[in-house]
Amino acid sequence: MAEELGRAVAELYEEHRRAAFPPRLKVDDANGVEMVSLDSRVVGCVGTWLENRGAVDNRRWDTLAECEQLLDRAIPALNEAEAVYYRRLLTMTVLILETPDDTQVR
């Protein structure tokens, strides 16, 4: 993993882990997207990517690709504070998905 990319994702990941989950989204969906599950799926894949020094398997890669689409659908329905929380997830997702294929475990 490129050191700069890894550092950027790690910083976002730690910031995200410290952030409070938006209370309304514990019970409400956004544009039909279940937000608690979306959060945990992305965080799990990002954590694995960091542990594996910039590599994820096909299943996690596909999960992140699906989550990117769900985030794009859900974020417009969120208030500003909620959107900040989920845009951070989207940023991490995009950074990982844009990593050159030769660094991925397929």
Rank of each mutant, 00 (worst) to 15 (best):
Q104I: 00
F21H: 07
M35H: 03
L64G: 01
V94H: 06
A20N: 13
R41C: 10
G47N: 09
L25P: 11
E11R: 14
R60T: 04
R24V: 13
M1P: 04
Y85N: 00
P23L: 13
V46N: 06
N31G: 15
T93N: 03
Y85W: 06
D102G: 14
R17F: 05
R17Q: 07
G32R: 12
G47P: 07
L64T: 02
S37N: 09
A2Y: 07
R18M: 11
A10I: 04
D102N: 14
E68T: 04
V43N: 04
D101N: 07
V84S: 03
R7H: 13
L97G: 00
A55M: 05
N52P: 05
P23F: 07
C67Q: 12
R7I: 11
A74G: 07
A19S: 09
V43M: 11
D62E: 13
E66N: 15
N58T: 14
L90K: 06
V9F: 04
C67Y: 06
R87G: 04
W49V: 00
E82P: 03
P76W: 05
E15M: 08
R17I: 07
E98A: 04
R87Q: 09
P22D: 08
R41K: 12
E14Q: 11
P22R: 01
V27M: 13
L70N: 10
T99F: 01
V56E: 00
E82Y: 02
E34A: 14
L70S: 13
P23N: 09
R24H: 08
A83E: 08
L71M: 10
T48Q: 11
D62Q: 12
W61N: 09
G6P: 02
K26G: 13
V27K: 13
A74T: 06
G6V: 04
Y85Q: 01
P22C: 08
E82G: 00
E51W: 08
E34T: 12
W61T: 03
D28L: 15
R7Y: 07
R60K: 15
R87I: 05
D62T: 10
R17G: 10
G47F: 07
R73L: 06
D72G: 14
W61K: 04
G32S: 14
Q69T: 15
D101G: 11
T103F: 09
A10W: 02
R17M: 11
G47W: 10
L25T: 06
L12G: 15
P23C: 11
H16F: 09
E15T: 13
A83D: 01
E3V: 08
E82Q: 03
D62Y: 12
Q69N: 14
G54E: 03
Y86R: 01
N52K: 10
V94N: 02
I75H: 03
T48P: 04
R17K: 13
G44L: 11
L97A: 02
E66R: 09
V105Q: 12
E68A: 12
V42L: 00
S37W: 08
E82M: 08
N58D: 15
V9W: 05
V43D: 04
A65W: 10
Y85R: 01
P76L: 09
L25N: 07
E80R: 10
V42R: 03
L38E: 02
R88D: 01
G32F: 12
V56A: 00
T48I: 09
E98H: 12
V56D: 03
D57R: 08
D39L: 07
L95P: 01
E66Q: 14
E68M: 10
C45L: 03
R41Q: 15
N31W: 14
R53A: 10
